[in-house]
Design a binder for these strands. Sequence first.
DNA 1: AAGGATTTCAACCGCGTATTG
DNA 2: CCAATACGCGGTTGAAATCCT
Length: 226
Amino acid sequence: MVRKPYVKKGTWTPDEDQKLVAYIMRYGIWNWNEMPRFAGLQRSGKSCRLRWMNYLRPNIRRGNFTREEEETIIRLQKKLGNRWSAIAARLPNRTDNDIKNHWNTRLKKRVILENNNSASATTETHSSNEENSADDADSSSLLNIPTMADFPEPSGCHQTLDVNNNSMRETFVSSENYWEILSFLEQPLIAEGFDCEAVSPNSQLWHSHHEHYYDPVDDFWANPLI
DNA sequence: AAGGATTTCAACCGCGTATTG
DNA sequence: CCAATACGCGGTTGAAATCCT
């Protein structure tokens, strides 16, 4: 009889966060299902991935959405629907989960309220042509969405050696825990003769891997690391 | 101050898609 | 091809925080 390994659920502890970040910093992301075991975590790969993507990944902006960001979300939601990952790709450093939460808890209500107000303020003679022209305006304004090149390079990135395929991988750590975990990691790395500076964010190697790509389907420039 | 109602958001779940063998 | 596995996405839940009476 084979007993399933215990899988913890619920809120992540700081200790678990540190284990996950330290592991990813050191070995990179290679297989979410296998990683927790090697990282000493009693979590599902899915849970680890979610925690990393939505919380621990560095350069994530959390809370305090600016007016511009909110307007962008409203505009894109109208155009794309609830495609949160596509919307998040257009809002640098915001996660799809954060955007989804913000929409569900605040923006949706605001939009409904504004629609009700505008409906009561105007006559009921909306033609479909007017609807279309509004959509066209949305489309054209989308063309002015800034590309990733318009935003500064993310800071606080760290790169590690992927011991499984001997290739360099970009992995990151949140600015909150960066120095704590860096010092945690440097000891064994130095002991093994690993030169942290050689793969620092300023190094040639780092830049050579830090590129943007064009998504022809969604028609925008994206950063694969975000 | 108390406690019920409401809001927020981290995390889970299920499903569709992509990849691999 | 096909099945198994891994990944990614969007909907939903529930605990914690905040607000209100």
